[in-house]
Write a protein that binds this DNA or RNA. Structure first.
Length: 199
DNA sequence: GTCCGGATTACCT
DNA sequence: GGTAATCCGGACT
């Protein structure tokens, strides 16, 4: 967990350093609040990154200022929320994959009618975006500004942080990079079980 | 102009 | 554990 200033400094340096710092921070929008428990990192030299070998159009926000939101759409239905990292022009981002709901559960349930249990509300990047009402409109929002509609704030200390391979990356696209981090004390809220639990 | 696949989810067996 | 749903951008004809 980090303060906004600490996170911004890390985002400017290295996305791999910044990503685990987001665990434990709170994502806030209106009365909605949730603790981040799972993140993934993407970089310019990473074959799985949208900006790998290309630029412009949908990934434009990826080249913007660190701390801004990069929101994009996939699989026909799903929005994904990322935090932009690295200085202007060097694309990198942190995908927020899952969170523990803390406040505004009723509003989240209304947006996630298919969620049978509270564990289903935010346990996946598409679910999290749906529960928070995040769409392309939030693309470019400054997530570190107290004035923003959607923002990250200083949260509470996470349990032990564990790293492992990312989810949903095609074989050959650096799928083995251990660039996914979870709060091991809050596995209940994570999107997918750990591939191989360290025993 | 057409085809294909994707940083996913939900439903079926 | 397998797969249909759903649609935009990029690759190719």
């Amino acid at each position: 967990m980090a303060t906004n200033a600490e996170l911004l400094a890390a985002l400017e340096r290295d996305v791999l350093e910044a990503a685990p710092m987001v665990l434990g921070m709170y994502l806030v929008r209106g009365d909605l609040r949730a603790r981040v428990v799972e993140v993934e990192a993407y970089r310019a030299d990473d074959p799985a990154c949208h900006a790998f070998g290309k630029s412009k159009m949908k990934n434009m926000a990826l080249f913007e200022e660190p701390g801004k939101a990069y929101v994009y759409f996939t699989y026909g239905n799903h929005w994904m929320l990322n935090i932009v990292a690295h200085p202007h022009g060097d694309p990198a981002a942190i995908l927020i994959r899952a969170a523990e709901p803390l406040a505004g559960l009723d509003e989240m349930r209304l947006r996630r009618l298919k969620a049978k249990r509270d564990e289903d509300l935010l346990s996946g990047p598409g679910k999290l975006a749906a529960a928070f009402g995040i769409t392309g409109e939030q693309n470019g929002t400054n997530l570190l500004s107290a004035d923003s509609d959607l923002r990250l704030v200083h949260g509470s200390k996470p349990g032990k942080i564990v790293a492992g391979p990312r989810i949903g990356i095609a074989v050959g696209k650096a799928h083995e990079y251990p660039w996914r981090w979870v709060d091991s004390k809050r596995m209940r809220w994570v999107s997918k079980p750990w591939p191989q639990l360290p025993s």
